[in-house]
Every structure is written in structure tokens, then in C-alpha cells.
Write a protein that binds this DNA or RNA. Sequence first.
DNA 1: ACATTAATTGTGT
DNA 2: ACACAATTAATGT
Length: 210
Amino acid sequence: MIASLKENFNSRFEKDLLEEISETGRLIQVKEGERLIEIGEYLRSMPLLISGAIKILREDQNGDELLLYFIEKGDTCDMSLICCLGHNKSEIRAVAELNSEIIMIPVQKMEEWMGKYKSWRNFVLQSYHERMLEMLDAIDNLAFNKLDERLVKYLKEKQKITNNDIIQSTHQEIAYELYTSRVVISRLLKKLENTGQIELQRNSIRIINL
DNA sequence: ACATTAATTGTGT
DNA sequence: ACACAATTAATGT
């Protein structure tokens, strides 16, 4: 566990902290599609992502999902940070996008470390800041209805987390994540194909140049 | 190997 | 948004 921990967080955390993490955290493995956090749940530990990727979703009254953002290795889930600290219910759902490894840290410890380790405090604050900016960006895109931009961003993110130029999803799945209809996605993808940025295949999309 | 069905994608209204 | 055609994948016989 120490090894995988160091791989991702070595530069960020001091030695003592790394040790404490490996002592108190437990390493769990999740399979693709598994739900980590459900809306309304109380969180008693916070996740550090070692490998893989997690997607964070919001749900509306009808039970429809909207993709908020992805978490990659080396990140944590900021919503769960807030929930833990405030002892609130989760406002979001977390689903594993890929098979992933996660270290779960109990709330008490993370509170303790906030005072004890500067690197921990910085990590928390910085990732919180990053996510905040990303959220603002997402809100902009929603407000101005730039669906094509959202789609491009989605494709890029997916390319990044899978480390693969070929994206394995149907138009329907993408539409569901971006909260639109399949037809809209199909048309937008077609445009991107015509401008030579992607190549469309059945059940998959190849990214040429975004 | 073939036929049938279901799912995915493209397009016009 | 809806309807439908065309294409492809999945399944059973």
C-alpha cells in the first residue's frame, strides 16, 4: 500500500503523514460501474484516489443524472470533504468510471491532520480551490448553453482518464451524462467528424484532434 | 450458416 | 422532440 501511495502522493505529503495514511487508511478496490457514494448517505470516511477514475453525478427530481466532473488519480472528492467536515448528507453520487483503487480515510483522522500537517491542509485547500474553478466553468457552460463545448470537454476528459484515443460509449450514454437527448449528441458528433476532429464508429469514437 | 431481434446511429420533418 | 430508415451486433435454431 505504501508503494502505490508514494507513487501518487509522494511529492505532496511529508513522510510522517504518508506513514499515518498507510496506518489508518484502508485500501479498497472498486469495479467499473460500482457506486461509492449515494445521495443522502452520511460519509464517515473520505477517499483518496490511487488509480482509475471516478465520476461525480448529481440527480434531479425525476431521477435523471447529470455529470458534474471526473476525479483522476491523485485527487480526492471535494464534496465528500465538505460532507465529512460538516457531518452532512452527501449531495452527490459517486460512481467508478474505471476499475479503481482508493484509500479511505476516517473523518476523525482527516480532521486531526488538518491541524497537524501543513501539507495536508494545503492539499485539501488546493484541491478544493481547483474543483471550485472547474465548477464555475461548468456553470458557465450550462448557463450559456454551449452544449458543443461541453461535449468536447467531456470527450477530452474521457480521453485523458482512459489514456486512450478511442472512447467506448454509445451516443445514448453520452447524452445521458450530459443531460440531453441522443439525437443532439449524434448531430454534434457528426459535426465534429466532418471537421476532422473525431472519427465515428459504432459503439466507439476515435479522437483525432481536439 | 441463416433468420430473427434488438440496439445503435443517421436524417428529415 | 418525434418518427423512421439504415446499419450493425447479438442470439437462437
